[in-house]
């Protein structure tokens, strides 16, 4: 029993970190542009396909180099989206940007289908395997997800707080008008933000390949769950997303002890609704 619980917690932690990353990605875009990006699940998909379907399977490139190529591609795709889509939409009512990013999502989905086909693409051996710790057998994927996500979160905090580009991004998020009067190129800063956000999507994409396979619906509900993570932890605030994501991931995983596994997706929605009703500012109580 204790072992099962421990395994569930580790699996939950891993999913929790994925939700946390999604939430962080929502947050930095929201802060940088005041826009909600509803295409990011598709960017996750695109990152996974670029890496797996294109670079590894079609081009036969080795995994590490394929990862690097994918990161470079997603960064520039993000930058492109910022200049072509987000910047013109920024000055329009929110409904236009929401529609715009949803349409972008559809374009990517159909594009992926067109280029790489409808069928799941097997990617043998990628991040798979198990790790034994005494009696405990742990899925290697979970451990890798936890390590990569934790490193990424830490790196992002250092980047935002200690580098000049990151500081400029924080300024833009707090006051766009004033940021420009400091000499910050707001368009460029927003584009870098979008690029980083797309890179995070790509990383999420390759991390979840072993869990959900390389297929059109691989992202499942992680978009909405990442959003829920933000609300539960405290929206618009990076530590909030981390706390919310981990809480949702672990609770969802542990819920399978008491209810059948197919109901576990409900956990995040119950938490989302409860927090919206009872504590809309989230666990960390940060005012957005």
């Amino acid at each position: 029993m204790a072992q099962t619980v421990l395994q569930l917690i580790i699996g939950g932690l891993a999913m929790g970190f994925i939700y946390a990353l999604v939430s962080i990605e929502y947050t930095i875009i929201w802060n940088a542009s005041g826009l909600l990006n509803f295409s990011h699940e598709r960017l996750i998909l695109l990152g996974a396909y670029l890496f797996g379907a294109q670079f590894v399977v079609r081009n036969g490139i080795s995994n590490p180099i394929a990862v690097v190529l994918m990161l470079i591609c997603t960064f520039f795709i993000g930058v492109l989206i910022s200049y072509v889509l987000m910047r013109p939409l920024r000055n329009l009512p929110l409904v236009f940007s929401v529609t715009g990013t949803i349409m972008l999502g559809r374009i990517i989905t159909e594009g992926v289908r067109l280029i790489w086909g409808n069928n799941p693409i097997p990617l043998v051996g990628w991040l798979e395997g198990t790790i034994k710790a005494g009696e405990l057998v742990i899925n290697r994927t979970y451990i890798i997800i936890i390590i990569v996500a934790a490193v990424l979160v830490a790196a992002l905090q250092i980047f935002l707080n200690k580098t000049k580009v990151g500081t400029a991004m924080r300024c833009v998020s707090q006051n766009k008008k004033a940021a420009a009067f400091m000499g910050i190129d707001v368009d460029r800063s927003s584009a870098i933000t979008m690029g980083i956000s797309a890179v995070i999507c790509g990383i999420i994409g390759i991390l979840i390949i072993p869990l959900f396979q390389l297929k059109g619906d691989m992202t499942g509900m992680i978009g909405i769950k990442g959003f829920a993570a933000g609300v539960v932890g405290g929206f618009g605030y990076i530590p909030g997303g981390i706390v919310g994501g981990i809480l949702i991931g672990v609770l969802e995983s542990l819920s399978t002890l008491v209810v059948p596994g197919i109901y576990k997706d409900i956990v995040s929605f119950i938490l989302l609704i409860v927090f919206l009703l009872v504590r809309p500012s989230g666990i960390l109580g940060h005012k957005a």
Binding site: A168, R170, C171, Q174, N175, F181, M182, I184
Partner: peptide, 17 residues
């Protein structure tokens, strides 16, 4: 139009961006 969530000192440093 200060940066509300930055310290006074960090605001000043931004002035020299």
């Amino acid at each position: 139009e200060v940066f509300p969530k930055m310290s006074v000192k960090d605001n000043l440093v931004m002035g020299a961006y």
